[in-house]
Design a protein around this nucleic acid. Sequence first.
RNA 1: GCACCGGUGGCGAAGUGGCUAACGCACAGGUCUGCAAAACCUGCAUUCGCGGGUUCAACUCCCGCCCGGUGCUCCA
Length: 492
Amino acid sequence: MTLHLFNTLSGQLDELVPADGAELRMYVCGPTVYDYGHIGNFRTFLEVDVLRRFLKLMGMRLRHVMNITDVDDKIIRNAAAAGIPIGEYTPKFVDAFFEDLESLRVERPEAIARATEHIDKMVELIQKLAAAGAAYQVEDGSWYFRLAAFPEYGKLSKKDLSGMEDGARVDVDEYEKDSARDFALWKAAKPGETAWETAIGRGRPGWHIECSAMAMEYLGESFDLHAGGEDLMFPHHENEIAQSESVTHKPLARHWMHVRFLLVDGKKMSKSEGNFYTLRDLLLKGYKASAIRMALISVPYRHQLNFTFDGLTEATNAIDRLRTFHQRLSQTSFGPGESDAIQVAAHKARAEYFDAMANDLNTAEARAPIFDLLRTANTAIDKGQFLAGDRDAVLKVLADFDAVFDVIADRDAEPTKRALAWAEQAGRQADVAPELLARVALSDDDIENLVAERTQAKKLRNFARADQIRNELLDKGVVIEDSKDGVRWKRK
RNA sequence: GCACCGGUGGCGAAGUGGCUAACGCACAGGUCUGCAAAACCUGCAUUCGCGGGUUCAACUCCCGCCCGGUGCUCCA
């Protein structure tokens, strides 16, 4: 089985396979670390994580590189406002970014490349471009890419630039450029700005050249897959292609994946619209990291996703159903042997799950057979027709599901705890939902003690006291379930 | 303005030229339970934005229209 993934470059579903037959080499545009990441950022990284995990599940080896843009206009501006060098400004946000990825269970790429640690590679690339006649320097010392030197420009985004003549909507300050659409490779230092002394002058790299230089440094001149948010398709990726291929005359990447935008309440997220959320904002409101992950990956990556709080609640409840089922399978004792019906159902579910994922990562479709199997198994358990061997078969399917989705195992306590600690340190206590505080104040031991007390009360048929305890726990987000195999509890 | 994407039950969301239009959430009734919860059963779109057309047959293909979103500029 191979993954058929939509390829922006070819405009169709293409098989995604390593060119060398051994290891898939992929590059993903990472964050610009000028602030905390918002959920739109994380949608892209979550979808790439889905891709990663599914490829690994199919047995593929990966070499996945992600960059960190730790120098750019916004960073320079924010650092200046804070009165510190950018090297002191960005680490906090780099750390926060990785902490957030961890909360969302996004796997780390095999390599992380920071822009500021690869300035020399960027300079080299610009020199090569200059030698090839594709780069030129203007009066103030900045370097630009000569679009006229790359006739294929526009092949990724399918833009016809012929009609877009120089003229309208041109930044009048940039009259030094040969053509209005030529883009910056290197920005000459203005007084007081962060800059590097290099062979091509004193300044800092443009954004696009970073990715070209680092991608080729880590993955070679031509690699398998390049991914990023849909907004990067033009001009960022188009520019990467132009810069790289003008020098190498080889395709930078064979396959291009673009994750579509996340909208909030039907609109693009923006601070001015007031619909802007970071991961931390949501955690402090009491939403679980797993619910956020589930909500963001359940809509296939090639569709816009409309984020709502109702959607988070739905995801929370769907995960609860999966977790309850998993708990039931693990904690119930079954008779020996296996049943044909369940074995067949498990095989079918697994096959349908893989088919859906292999078809352009259709996560929405992939969920269906899992829930189908869940119901089939529950029904069999209710009827006493579910055997020990069936448990193993069904757990195996759930494991394959969770190898990608990673929401069944409950690891929600840590992210919440971290977010609360951060809120305190960042002075954001006012944003913490009161219910959340009540919940975290209750330890597992407290719960166990209360559950034991309730069981004792029930035994004495003191139902009033038993119900009182149950309601008390429910108020703090703990649900109790009585079953033949004992009492189960879980945090809502 | 140009380009692209979408409009499927209360909500989210798959999907196919022709079997009963997945799945999740929510809701209603029932079974189980001391009561619950969980689980299961039943119900919940004679219908897939609107109007034409092609076809034996369209939600699925074509044309037009309406609505929503995004891109064309820094942006995941």
